[in-house]
Design a protein around this nucleic acid. Sequence first.
RNA 1: GGUGGGAUACCUAAGUGGCCAAAGGGAGCCGGCUGUAAACCGGUUGCGUAAGCUUCGGAGGUUCGAAUCCUUCUCCCACCA
Length: 426
Amino acid sequence: MPDDIYAELEWRGLIHQATDPELGKLLTEEQFSLYCGFDPTADSLHLGGLIQLLGLRRMQMAGHRPIAVMGGGTGLIGDPSGRESERTLLEPDVLEQNIAAIRTQAEKIVDFTPGPAQATMVNNADWLRALTLTDFLRDIGKHFSVNQMVARDSVRNRLQNREQGISFTEFTYMLLQSYDFLHLYRELNCRLQIGGSDQWGNITYGIELIRKVTGGEAFGLTSPLIKGLGGAKMGKSVSGNVWLDPTKTTPYRFYQHFINVEDTRVGQFLRFFTFLSRTEIVELEARAREEPQRREAQKVLAREVTTLVHGAGEAARAERASKALFGSDIAELEEGELLDVLADAPSSTLPQTILRSGTSLIDLLIGAGLATSRKTAREFIGGGGVYINNTKQTDIERTVGEGDLLHGRYLVLRRGKKNHHLVNFG
RNA sequence: GGUGGGAUACCUAAGUGGCCAAAGGGAGCCGGCUGUAAACCGGUUGCGUAAGCUUCGGAGGUUCGAAUCCUUCUCCCACCA
């Protein structure tokens, strides 16, 4: 084990808590099998899950063996950690689909091909569903004290919350995840679990269970949660969750999301989301301080992460599109370029005949989904936020005719700085 | 099973007969400054060009007039059993 992976993670700010101060040393001395669980509550991971995948990969590059655990069994129950309301239970077949989707995402980041540090993937449904209630209560439940369990933050909050209680189902969740760890410890000699800091409680319970049942020693390592990654706010103009699935978040949007990262956080993001070396990152941070207006750190960040998740081809495309959309004159583009640049933008098709007599800009905006009502469409135009082919429009009465089309059939609508829409008059 | 409390726009939360299309805050959106950043400033967030129309958990009623009063239904919470 040549690299000091712990020091590396620490430098990147990826260590929130570790269960043992000796862990760093141990990781340089012996090979570990380590696991991270992935919750199949959706058919794609988002950026928080990406950090964990990258964590597994970083460990793998340091010679350790990652195990990606799909929560097919725990997903049936629902993890109350960090949540203030009860989860909706998922149907087993939905879980299956979600797991399949997440599996392909994991395979892009972590290396599952044979080798000394080969990664494996398992589904905890395989062992959890085989458990019988009586065995579970005798062999696992016996090791947990309810007194301790109710003292946990995630449980206590829900117990004290006047609006939301906690069901027995979710209350039991932590036992299941603990059992996962025990199972992996026994079957795959897995001695380390990593996860977001919200998993600390679940992880330490697992370690304790392993100690009580087998007398063995296991470890836990958590990374900080980045505020806003789950879909809350993160940068003013970026909305919604950022998914790894290209059909849920297009590569262009994905790329843009990182381009828009605030100056104050771009360094942190480079450390969290890329495999760039220390020297490269330090260099980029320095340049970001000196010439922030060039946004070089953001550009490198966006390219790196988009490449990791969507591949070099998509990253290059997103980069080209960004340059064209924010830099050059759209009307100058060749037809092929135009279509390529707007490939990820929403688009719609309308019959060209409606342009004969001219059709109103307001209607086009609504049709394109860039405005929800005539009233708001008027406000956008009046406020100077609407563009046709990147030319600002201020006339509320503006109508669009055949003369406005690019290459005889395209119209690029834009609302605000970042929302483009391609209308194809076929 | 009993008792009490509650349901208001994206979220939170005021409003308890007309001055309410509904305060305040958060969040979003558009604009300005800049650098596709932050901070800040301005505007905006039911529909309609407008007159006006439709909204305050659902249904019905009282009234000239209801988010506000009455009846009933649904759901949520707390305490007691």
